[in-house]
Each structure stands twice: as C-alpha cells, then as structure tokens.
Amino acid sequence: MELAQPPTAPLSDGGAATTDRVLQLAGVTVDLGGRRILDDVSFSLRAGELTGLIGSNGAGKTTLLRVILGLLAPTRGAVTVAGPDPRHSVGYVPQKFMLDPDLPVRARDLVALGIDGHHLGVARPSRERRERVTRMLDAVGAGRFADTRVGRLSGGEQQRVLIAHALISHPRLLLLDEPLANLDLRSAREAVDLLARIAREQRIAVMISAHEMNALLPVMDRVVYLAEGRAACGPADEVVRADVLSRLYGHRVEVIRAGERVLVVAGEGDDAEPSHPHHHDSEER
C-alpha cells in the first residue's frame, strides 16, 4: 500500500523548522456557557510530524479542534494556519459521525466531495477524477468498499473513508478527533501506522486526539496534553512526566511506566506543588 498522492508542498527537507510551521496557536482561551474550557493554550505544529492531543473526557479536545478549524471563535488568542488558503488546507475527521445507512452516497462519492464539495453546482465527471478517488481510497485501504453506501460500512471502515475524504484535497494539516475510539486493537494499530506514514510521506502535520495515549506512543512525535483547560506540549518523554503533569492538573499525579505502556494516575498528597492557581470549578459535578 503506498500513497499515490504527491506531497502538497515542495519538500524542504532538513533544518528550517520555522518555515515548516503549519499551525500556530498563541494564547488561545475559550469560554463556553460561562465556563473556561481552554485557558491560554499555545503550541505549534510542523509539517511531517504526528502530534497526539491527549486529555480525558471533557478536557476540551474537540473544542480545541473546532477552534483550529475556525468553527468556533476563541475568546482570546490567535490561531494561524500557514498557507494561502487556510480554510481549505485543513482536513478534518470528526469524532461522532452517524451516517444514515440509506444515504445514497457511496464511499467514492464522499471522497469526491472531499475534492470540491464546497463548490457550487454539479461536478463534471471525468476519468481522471474517478481515478484520483480510486487511488485515494486504495491508499487508505478502503478500495474494497469504494462502491458501498458509506452509511452501511462499519465504524472503522467509515473512518478510513473519512480520512480519504480529508486527504484528497492535499491539506497541510490533518485533524482527527478520537479516531481510535471505535477501533479494536489491531485496527487501531493499523490506523495509527497509516496516519504516521501519511504524516511522513506527504509532509502533513497530523494531529490525533485521544483520551488514552498508549496506542499513539510508538509513533507520536509530540504531545499536546490538556488538563484543567491548560496545555503542556513537547516530545512525549518531556511532557508525560509526573512533575509536568502534576503542575498541569494542579494536584499530584503519578506516571507509571509498565513496559511500553504509560499510565497517568492521581497521586497521594493531593495538593503538592500547585504552581498554577486552581481551576477546579467548585460547582462542577
């Protein structure tokens, strides 16, 4: 299986990290329903890297992705997507998609809508267009069900089709919200490998949200770890550490390593080194 799409931008291999910067968030703060969901979040993503967006349920992962997509305006702060046409250089695979089984849209139709679904009028069918869609479906391992209605595919199969839909327009940034949540261990592994290869081969910045980071550990270049509305980011071994995460959570947590796996658990002695003010909402739950 190889990716047939040529890279979006000319390869500028080596060095020049700043020119490779695809996305930059500076001091992004989001309030929703009177609550602070994200608090002064800053980080940047570079082409060719795979980043894990890690946080427990309700940590603000989906909210952060929606801000990046421009679907939600931050209360404060700035989001900069590099490139001439930011809107169409971001691919997105949403967290919840319930596609209607009776929808008269085949996998290949949905992928074709990834090319020009935002354009007015009817698409002119052509052999070239058809082949481009087929290549894309093959590249994500979805060639087998190209002619099946998307709503009738399994969750994992739909996900591949949605990845193809997102990738076919050559985005510079690919955002996936909890793509592993509905997959069994083997499919999750396959999906992670696929996404890592997409990042490397096409020089795309890939960001994957997850509440559980273990499936991502082997391929993740960087982590953006969300807790209490704040974010810590950097290479996994610099972020996933007891001191960093304790500071983030505002209370003591421990990082337990067991072989390849990592476990973040609440530690004893609840209020050790809270260097940030507490952001626990007292009325919460």
Binding site: L71, V90, Y92, P94, L99, G117, H119, G121, L162
Partner: peptide, 21 residues
Amino acid sequence: LTLYRPLLLASVSPELAAARG
C-alpha cells in the same frame, strides 16, 4: 442545482461541510 454539492455534503454531515467552509 446550484447548491448541489454543498447541499449533499451538508446532508451527509453538517460538521464535515462546515469544516470545508
């Protein structure tokens, strides 16, 4: 007819359509 593609995409998933602008 003018709205054909965006309408179809929005019918599949409003979220996907919105993400495409």
